[in-house]
Design a protein around this nucleic acid. Structure first.
Length: 584
RNA sequence: GCCGACGUAGCUUAGUGGUAAAGCACUUCAUUGGUAAUGAAGAGACCAUGGGUUCGAUCCCCAUCGUCGGCUCCA
């Protein structure tokens, strides 16, 4: 409860700051129209129509200065009710406010205004209660961006200024520090520094390539996911990357995906092909290739498959939003009475995965609402939603229900993973599908000989590996646990004469399948340590005269600890247990 | 796709209407080291691409491609 009050207070503060921003901008550039300016998660924004004028981030300090100046003369916020005609008169020159007034009038809402410091604005209220000059002190304008009026791409593009505001200087500084930290951990930056992936203009945007180091992390994560699935009774399948359009016309994805499909033209055969945007219709083809019995179910097909979606250019972001997406995908065909067990199994896998990765998560049960966009039988939905809720309860998941968030073909459980900066990401998902099996006329023979349509479950543990990696790189800041570190051990010979012993150590590590390398450059030991450190390599083994003589290795960790000299065998036991336990 | 900013060596960045500078990385030579950078020298850039303005463009203008901040979208 207290938390909610605090949040309200914070929102009021930020929303008030948005007013101040609007006032400052209008004073600096008369003729500018301000649109809306709400508080958002970590701050606020205010939309403007600057007309022909352009502003950029370089203008922000000037605006901030003006805000600080103006707030000195602001009295407390006072909200007063006005008649529609009066409001229209007050905002006669502002088309955005007029549109809102018209709409509020139509809906029969009361219209309220306020004017601290003689800056009149249309506003439903929710402001700081004290003296603005005492409260609106610790704010910062952050960025400038475009945004459609009322969020519709059919409308005019306005200029949005983002900012944030806190009750105290300490909180503001802490928030700004967090933003800095996020920037430092940006996966695009770390991807370059740690040499994990490459994006080439010749290959194209949104088509990342993974370097040897990046591929190790990718493969290790996928191997973990695949092993979880194999031990849960999943079978691996493989399907091609292109298909005739007929497949997606039948599945309904042709219409649904529209321009997101990559088209492929054959020069040999008639007709068009597409790059697959998902794997499920292919899995269905394998199901329907034989007559199935109730004894075959559940049938669990897994495929770590790459799919292609023609994302709009402006939507691409590092390896987070890409056009080539690899999923640890699987499709399960089962009866209604098997759904609970299958969902449980998937949730177990999700738990094992994120526990090993050291990430907390919560579940969003995405259900249908009363709208007609959801296909399938009402009673199936109800029964399925009950089952999903039961699973969430039985497994003691932290969960909430989101009505209307379901896929059109069935309810689902989405997993929201929290990273070390407190941001939430949707990664894993398990979805029930009432529609696809019907579209493709899938059946199995029941005990009594009747033909029944199975249910289908779609699942992913990591989701898109590209997206997941971007999250995980930022979560760890590039300090990967030993089992994922591309290089687990760096051998550092002190002088050239120690190369031979270093090589011997290297060979022994390699024969134990440890990813080890030796730094044989003509550099000082200090320089080699520094480089290994900035590559965040978990263990550095320093070998010099003493080690060679005693047949040991001097261990330094990336945390800067000097663990002293140990016989190589002992080090091997230690690192093997790190890898085995997936500890950091 | 939309609004805005940006695109200079492998990376990070400086700079100018008269074909460009630095640090790191790279190569070579010297140095043989004990837990976060040894020293010196060298090489490396048609200043994103295509067009235009100009005696002359990396710089100004237009287009294209790409990147970034957002918006929209994410079945």
């Amino acid at each position: 409860m207290d938390k909610k009050i605090d949040q309200d207070r914070l929102n009021n503060l930020r929303h008030s700051c948005a007013h101040l921003l609007a006032a400052a901008v209008k004073q600096l550039w008369p003729g500018t129209h301000n649109a809306i300016g709400p508080a958002i998660e970590n701050g606020f924004y205010q939309d403007f129509d600057f007309g022909a004028m352009k502003i950029s981030e370089e203008d922000l300090p000037e605006i901030e200065k003006k805000m600080q100046e103006m707030v000195q003369n602001w009295g407390p916020f006072q909200t007063k009710e006005v008649a529609v005609d009066q409001a229209k008169k007050d905002f006669a020159d502002n088309p955005y406010k007029l549109e809102l007034i018209e709409e509020f009038a139509k809906e029969g809402k009361t219209i309220t205004e306020n004017n601290p410091g003689n800056f009149l604005d249309l506003c439903k209220g929710g402001h700081t209660e004290g003296e603005p000059k005492e409260e609106l002190k610790y704010f910062k304008l952050l960025s400038v961006a475009g945004a459609y009026w009322r969020g519709s791409e059919k409308n005019k593009m306005l200029t949005r200024i983002y900012g944030t505001c806190f009750p105290t200087k300490e909180e503001l500084d802490e928030h700004l520090k967090m933003l800095e930290e996020a920037k430092k951990r940006d996966h695009r930056k770390l991807g370059k520094e740690l040499d994990l992936f490459v994006i080439s203009d010749l290959v194209g945007a949104g088509l990342p390539m993974f370097t040897p180091k990046g591929t190790i992390i990718r493969d290790e994560l996928l191997k973990f996911s695949e092993n979880l699935q194999l031990s849960a009774g999943y079978q691996r399948i493989w399907t091609p990357h292109i298909t005739k359009t007929d497949l997606y016309k039948k599945s309904g994805h042709w219409d649904k995906f529209g321009e997101e499909l990559f088209l492929v033209q054959s020069q040999e055969t008639e007709g068009q092909f597409v790059l697959k945007p998902m794997n499920c219709p292919h899995a269905i083809q394998i199901y329907s290739s034989r007559i199935r019995s109730y004894k075959d179910l559940p049938l669990r097909y897994m495929e770590t498959g790459t799919v292609y979606r023609d994302e709009k250019t402006g939507e691409m972001l590092g390896i987070s939003r890409v056009r080539s997406i690899t999923q640890d995908d699987a499709h399960i065909f089962c009866r209604m009475d098997q759904i609970e067990e299958e969902f449980r199994k998937i949730m177990d896998m999700v738990r094992s995965m994120y526990k090993a990765l050291g990430m907390e998560f919560k579940a969003r049960l995405s259900f249908r609402d009363s709208s007609d966009k959801f296909l399938g039988e009402q009673k199936d939905w109800e029964q399925a939603q009950e089952i999903l809720t039961k699973v969430a309860k039985d497994l003691n998941l932290e969960y909430y229900i989101a009505e209307g968030e379901a896929a059109f073909y069935g309810p689902k459980i989405d997993i929201l993973v929290t990273d070390s900066l407190g941001r939430e990401w949707q990664c894993a998902t398990e979805q029930l599908d009432f529609v696809m099996p019907q579209r493709f006329g899938l059946t199995y023979t029941e005990k009594d000989g009747s033909q029944t349509t199975p249910f289908m479950v779609h699942k992913a543990i990591l989701g898109s590996i590209e997206r997941f990696l971007s999250v995980y790189i930022e979560h760890t800041g590039g300090t990967f646990p030993v089992w994922l570190a591309p290089i687990q051990v760096q051998i550092i010979p002190i002088a050239d004469r120690h190369q031979g012993y270093g090589q011997k150590v290297l060979e022994q590590l390699k024969s134990s399948i440890i990813r080890a390398e030796i730094d044989s450059r003509q550099e000082t030991m200090q320089a080699k340590i520094r480089d290994a450190q900035s590559q965040k390599i978990p263990y550095m083994l320093i070998v010099g005269d003493r080690e060679e003589k005693e047949n040991t290795v001097a261990i330094r960790t990336r945390a800067g600890q000097n663990l002293g000299a140990l016989p190589l065998e002992e080090f091997l036991t230690k690192i093997k247990s790190d890898i085995e336990l997936k500890s950091s």
